[in-house]
Design a protein around this nucleic acid. Structure first.
Lengths: 126, 126
DNA sequence: TCCAGTATGCACCATTTGGTAAGTGCGTCA
DNA sequence: TGACGCACTTACCAAATGGTGCATACTGGA
Protein backbone atom coordinates (compact mmCIF):
# COMPACT_ATOMS: atom_id res chain seq x y z
CA UNK A 1 0.00 0.00 0.00
CA UNK A 2 2.94 2.30 0.69
CA UNK A 3 1.27 4.89 2.87
CA UNK A 4 1.91 8.44 1.74
CA UNK A 5 3.68 9.09 5.02
CA UNK A 6 7.29 8.53 5.89
CA UNK A 7 6.75 8.58 9.61
CA UNK A 8 3.88 8.87 12.02
CA UNK A 9 4.59 12.53 12.51
CA UNK A 10 3.51 13.83 9.18
CA UNK A 11 0.62 11.41 9.28
CA UNK A 12 -0.55 13.26 12.34
CA UNK A 13 0.23 16.66 10.92
CA UNK A 14 -1.82 15.85 7.86
CA UNK A 15 -4.79 16.06 10.14
CA UNK A 16 -3.62 18.59 12.71
CA UNK A 17 -1.87 21.02 10.44
CA UNK A 18 -4.33 23.86 10.34
CA UNK A 19 -3.58 27.12 12.03
CA UNK A 20 -6.35 26.66 14.59
CA UNK A 21 -6.77 22.91 14.74
CA UNK A 22 -4.62 22.37 17.78
CA UNK A 23 -6.64 25.00 19.60
CA UNK A 24 -9.89 23.40 18.53
CA UNK A 25 -8.72 20.03 19.77
CA UNK A 26 -7.52 21.60 22.97
CA UNK A 27 -10.85 23.18 23.76
CA UNK A 28 -12.97 20.25 22.68
CA UNK A 29 -10.90 17.92 24.85
CA UNK A 30 -12.66 19.56 27.75
CA UNK A 31 -16.13 18.90 26.51
CA UNK A 32 -18.83 19.75 24.06
CA UNK A 33 -19.09 23.35 22.91
CA UNK A 34 -21.54 25.26 20.81
CA UNK A 35 -20.10 26.96 17.76
CA UNK A 36 -20.17 30.43 19.26
CA UNK A 37 -18.59 29.25 22.51
CA UNK A 38 -15.81 27.58 20.59
CA UNK A 39 -15.16 30.65 18.52
CA UNK A 40 -14.92 32.85 21.59
CA UNK A 41 -12.68 30.28 23.27
CA UNK A 42 -10.30 30.13 20.35
CA UNK A 43 -9.95 33.87 20.13
CA UNK A 44 -9.55 35.94 17.05
CA UNK A 45 -10.33 33.45 14.32
CA UNK A 46 -12.40 34.37 11.36
CA UNK A 47 -15.66 32.49 11.02
CA UNK A 48 -14.71 31.29 7.59
CA UNK A 49 -11.56 29.56 8.71
CA UNK A 50 -13.01 28.15 11.89
CA UNK A 51 -15.92 26.61 10.03
CA UNK A 52 -13.58 25.34 7.37
CA UNK A 53 -11.28 23.65 9.83
CA UNK A 54 -14.19 22.21 11.76
CA UNK A 55 -15.49 20.74 8.54
CA UNK A 56 -12.15 19.17 7.82
CA UNK A 57 -11.87 17.74 11.31
CA UNK A 58 -15.40 16.46 10.94
CA UNK A 59 -14.67 14.91 7.55
CA UNK A 60 -11.57 13.33 9.08
CA UNK A 61 -13.66 11.76 11.81
CA UNK A 62 -12.08 13.69 14.63
CA UNK A 63 -14.90 15.96 15.70
CA UNK A 64 -18.60 15.32 15.80
CA UNK A 65 -21.15 17.94 14.79
CA UNK A 66 -24.62 17.82 16.23
CA UNK A 67 -27.14 20.15 14.67
CA UNK A 68 -30.25 20.59 16.76
CA UNK A 69 -32.11 21.78 13.72
CA UNK A 70 -33.55 24.70 15.59
CA UNK A 71 -34.12 28.25 14.60
CA UNK A 72 -32.13 30.19 15.61
CA UNK A 73 -29.41 27.64 14.92
CA UNK A 74 -27.85 25.54 17.65
CA UNK A 75 -24.90 23.35 16.80
CA UNK A 76 -22.68 21.48 19.20
CA UNK A 77 -19.18 20.22 18.53
CA UNK A 78 -17.43 17.43 20.39
CA UNK A 79 -14.65 14.91 19.86
CA UNK A 80 -15.32 11.50 18.39
CA UNK A 81 -13.67 8.40 19.86
CA UNK A 82 -10.96 8.74 17.24
CA UNK A 83 -10.50 12.35 18.20
CA UNK A 84 -10.23 11.43 21.86
CA UNK A 85 -7.60 8.83 21.08
CA UNK A 86 -5.64 11.43 19.18
CA UNK A 87 -6.06 13.81 22.07
CA UNK A 88 -4.59 11.24 24.44
CA UNK A 89 -1.56 10.86 22.19
CA UNK A 90 -1.15 14.61 22.22
CA UNK A 91 -1.03 15.26 25.95
CA UNK A 92 2.65 14.38 26.29
CA UNK A 93 3.61 16.72 23.49
CA UNK A 94 1.31 19.37 24.88
CA UNK A 95 3.03 19.10 28.24
CA UNK A 96 6.42 19.45 26.61
CA UNK A 97 5.17 22.54 24.87
CA UNK A 98 3.96 23.98 28.13
CA UNK A 99 7.15 23.16 29.98
CA UNK A 100 9.21 24.86 27.29
CA UNK A 101 6.73 27.58 26.44
CA UNK A 102 9.16 30.24 27.61
CA UNK A 103 11.85 29.05 25.24
CA UNK A 104 9.34 28.69 22.46
CA UNK A 105 7.92 32.13 23.09
CA UNK A 106 11.42 33.56 22.96
CA UNK A 107 12.03 31.75 19.71
CA UNK A 108 8.80 33.09 18.25
CA UNK A 109 9.62 36.59 19.43
CA UNK A 110 13.05 36.39 17.85
CA UNK A 111 11.41 35.68 14.53
CA UNK A 112 8.92 38.52 14.93
CA UNK A 113 10.81 41.58 16.13
CA UNK A 114 7.83 43.49 14.75
CA UNK A 115 5.34 44.32 17.46
CA UNK A 116 5.71 43.77 21.16
CA UNK A 117 3.22 46.09 22.84
CA UNK A 118 4.88 45.46 26.22
CA UNK A 119 6.61 48.65 27.36
CA UNK A 120 7.55 46.75 30.53
CA UNK A 121 11.03 45.78 31.62
CA UNK A 122 13.43 44.08 29.24
CA UNK A 123 12.66 47.05 27.06
CA UNK A 124 16.15 48.39 26.70
CA UNK A 125 17.85 45.17 25.76
CA UNK A 126 19.52 45.42 22.35
CA UNK B 1 4.39 37.56 30.22
CA UNK B 2 1.33 36.06 28.60
CA UNK B 3 2.95 33.69 26.18
CA UNK B 4 1.67 33.97 22.64
CA UNK B 5 0.37 30.42 22.91
CA UNK B 6 -2.94 29.20 24.22
CA UNK B 7 -1.80 25.65 24.76
CA UNK B 8 1.37 23.64 24.44
CA UNK B 9 0.27 22.30 21.11
CA UNK B 10 0.57 25.42 19.05
CA UNK B 11 3.75 26.21 20.93
CA UNK B 12 5.17 23.03 19.50
CA UNK B 13 3.70 23.59 16.09
CA UNK B 14 5.31 27.00 15.96
CA UNK B 15 8.57 25.14 15.69
CA UNK B 16 7.49 21.98 13.91
CA UNK B 17 5.07 23.46 11.43
CA UNK B 18 7.06 23.27 8.24
CA UNK B 19 6.17 20.84 5.53
CA UNK B 20 9.35 18.85 5.97
CA UNK B 21 10.31 19.54 9.55
CA UNK B 22 8.78 16.40 11.01
CA UNK B 23 10.71 14.37 8.46
CA UNK B 24 13.91 16.18 9.27
CA UNK B 25 13.43 15.53 12.97
CA UNK B 26 12.56 11.92 12.25
CA UNK B 27 15.74 11.28 10.31
CA UNK B 28 18.03 13.22 12.59
CA UNK B 29 16.65 11.33 15.60
CA UNK B 30 18.63 8.39 14.26
CA UNK B 31 21.92 10.18 14.08
CA UNK B 32 24.05 12.75 12.35
CA UNK B 33 23.62 13.13 8.62
CA UNK B 34 25.42 15.09 5.93
CA UNK B 35 23.30 17.50 3.97
CA UNK B 36 23.12 15.33 0.89
CA UNK B 37 22.25 12.23 2.89
CA UNK B 38 19.47 14.08 4.62
CA UNK B 39 18.08 15.36 1.36
CA UNK B 40 18.03 11.90 -0.14
CA UNK B 41 16.47 10.51 3.03
CA UNK B 42 13.70 13.06 3.04
CA UNK B 43 12.84 12.43 -0.58
CA UNK B 44 11.64 14.92 -3.10
CA UNK B 45 12.31 18.18 -1.34
CA UNK B 46 13.75 21.12 -3.14
CA UNK B 47 17.11 22.31 -1.90
CA UNK B 48 15.71 25.73 -1.24
CA UNK B 49 13.09 24.58 1.20
CA UNK B 50 15.23 22.00 2.91
CA UNK B 51 17.97 24.52 3.55
CA UNK B 52 15.42 27.05 4.67
CA UNK B 53 13.81 24.73 7.16
CA UNK B 54 17.17 23.54 8.41
CA UNK B 55 18.11 27.14 9.01
CA UNK B 56 14.95 27.73 10.98
CA UNK B 57 15.44 24.60 13.05
CA UNK B 58 19.00 25.71 13.63
CA UNK B 59 17.95 29.21 14.63
CA UNK B 60 15.40 27.65 16.97
CA UNK B 61 18.10 25.62 18.66
CA UNK B 62 16.74 22.27 17.57
CA UNK B 63 19.37 21.14 15.11
CA UNK B 64 23.10 21.67 15.13
CA UNK B 65 25.06 22.42 11.98
CA UNK B 66 28.70 21.48 11.77
CA UNK B 67 30.61 22.81 8.83
CA UNK B 68 33.92 21.08 8.29
CA UNK B 69 35.13 23.99 6.23
CA UNK B 70 36.47 21.73 3.56
CA UNK B 71 36.42 21.99 -0.18
CA UNK B 72 34.33 20.40 -1.54
CA UNK B 73 31.91 21.26 1.26
CA UNK B 74 31.07 18.87 4.05
CA UNK B 75 28.32 19.79 6.48
CA UNK B 76 26.78 17.58 9.12
CA UNK B 77 23.45 18.05 10.80
CA UNK B 78 22.40 16.61 14.14
CA UNK B 79 19.95 17.29 16.95
CA UNK B 80 20.82 19.52 19.86
CA UNK B 81 19.88 18.54 23.41
CA UNK B 82 16.76 20.64 23.04
CA UNK B 83 15.96 18.89 19.81
CA UNK B 84 16.43 15.51 21.42
CA UNK B 85 14.11 16.43 24.25
CA UNK B 86 11.50 17.48 21.70
CA UNK B 87 12.06 14.24 19.87
CA UNK B 88 11.37 12.28 23.04
CA UNK B 89 8.10 14.12 23.50
CA UNK B 90 7.20 13.25 19.94
CA UNK B 91 7.60 9.51 20.03
CA UNK B 92 4.19 8.84 21.54
CA UNK B 93 2.46 10.94 18.91
CA UNK B 94 4.58 9.36 16.23
CA UNK B 95 3.50 5.92 17.39
CA UNK B 96 -0.13 6.96 17.33
CA UNK B 97 0.37 8.18 13.81
CA UNK B 98 1.91 4.89 12.81
CA UNK B 99 -0.78 2.83 14.46
CA UNK B 100 -3.45 4.80 12.66
CA UNK B 101 -1.55 5.39 9.47
CA UNK B 102 -4.08 3.38 7.50
CA UNK B 103 -6.95 5.55 8.67
CA UNK B 104 -4.91 8.65 8.09
CA UNK B 105 -3.87 7.53 4.64
CA UNK B 106 -7.51 6.85 3.80
CA UNK B 107 -8.39 10.31 5.05
CA UNK B 108 -5.67 11.89 2.97
CA UNK B 109 -6.75 9.91 -0.08
CA UNK B 110 -10.33 11.00 0.40
CA UNK B 111 -9.19 14.60 0.19
CA UNK B 112 -7.07 13.99 -2.90
CA UNK B 113 -9.08 11.91 -5.34
CA UNK B 114 -6.68 13.31 -7.92
CA UNK B 115 -3.86 10.95 -8.69
CA UNK B 116 -3.35 7.42 -7.47
CA UNK B 117 -0.84 5.89 -9.89
CA UNK B 118 -1.49 2.42 -8.45
CA UNK B 119 -3.24 0.31 -11.08
CA UNK B 120 -3.01 -2.56 -8.59
CA UNK B 121 -5.90 -4.11 -6.74
CA UNK B 122 -8.52 -1.94 -5.05
CA UNK B 123 -8.65 -0.27 -8.44
CA UNK B 124 -12.30 -0.85 -9.15
CA UNK B 125 -13.63 0.33 -5.85
CA UNK B 126 -15.97 3.31 -6.22
C1' DT C 1 -39.12 49.00 14.72
C1' DC C 2 -34.44 48.20 14.74
C1' DC C 3 -30.55 45.78 16.08
C1' DA C 4 -27.94 41.83 17.98
C1' DG C 5 -27.08 37.02 17.95
C1' DT C 6 -27.32 32.36 15.89
C1' DA C 7 -24.28 29.13 12.33
C1' DT C 8 -22.91 29.26 7.93
C1' DG C 9 -21.92 30.47 2.66
C1' DC C 10 -19.57 33.10 -0.73
C1' DA C 11 -16.74 36.35 -3.40
C1' DC C 12 -12.67 38.40 -3.28
C1' DC C 13 -7.99 39.62 -1.68
C1' DA C 14 -3.42 39.32 1.11
C1' DT C 15 -0.01 36.66 2.94
C1' DT C 16 2.53 32.79 3.48
C1' DT C 17 4.56 28.84 1.78
C1' DG C 18 6.63 25.77 -1.35
C1' DG C 19 8.64 24.76 -5.90
C1' DT C 20 11.68 25.41 -10.35
C1' DA C 21 15.56 26.58 -12.59
C1' DA C 22 19.62 28.55 -12.84
C1' DG C 23 24.22 29.74 -10.94
C1' DT C 24 28.50 29.39 -7.60
C1' DG C 25 33.52 27.58 -6.72
C1' DC C 26 35.99 23.77 -6.44
C1' DG C 27 37.36 18.87 -6.69
C1' DT C 28 37.07 14.16 -8.75
C1' DC C 29 36.46 10.93 -12.24
C1' DA C 30 36.14 9.48 -17.17
C1' DT D 1 37.83 18.45 -21.49
C1' DG D 2 33.68 18.02 -19.86
C1' DA D 3 30.29 16.13 -16.81
C1' DC D 4 29.08 15.53 -12.01
C1' DG D 5 28.63 16.15 -7.00
C1' DC D 6 29.01 19.03 -2.96
C1' DA D 7 26.22 22.68 -0.12
C1' DC D 8 24.29 26.25 -0.95
C1' DT D 9 22.00 31.06 -3.10
C1' DT D 10 18.97 33.79 -5.81
C1' DA D 11 15.11 35.38 -8.77
C1' DC D 12 10.90 34.34 -10.06
C1' DC D 13 6.31 31.82 -9.84
C1' DA D 14 2.44 28.86 -8.30
C1' DA D 15 -0.33 27.09 -4.87
C1' DA D 16 -2.13 26.91 -0.43
C1' DT D 17 -3.80 29.24 3.36
C1' DG D 18 -6.01 32.69 5.98
C1' DG D 19 -8.81 37.01 6.37
C1' DT D 20 -12.69 40.62 5.34
C1' DG D 21 -17.07 41.68 4.56
C1' DC D 22 -21.52 40.88 3.12
C1' DA D 23 -25.71 37.79 2.94
C1' DT D 24 -29.03 34.49 4.96
C1' DA D 25 -33.60 33.26 7.89
C1' DC D 26 -35.21 33.68 12.06
C1' DT D 27 -35.83 35.02 17.24
C1' DG D 28 -35.70 37.91 21.18
C1' DG D 29 -34.81 42.13 23.52
C1' DA D 30 -34.75 47.46 23.70
Amino acid sequence: MASPFTCGLDAVLSVMGGKWKPLILYHLMRGTLRYGELRRAVGKVSDKVLIQQLKELQADGIVHRRDHGEIPPKVEYSLTDFGRSLARALVQLCQWGEQHSDDLAAIAARRTPAEEPEPSATARAR
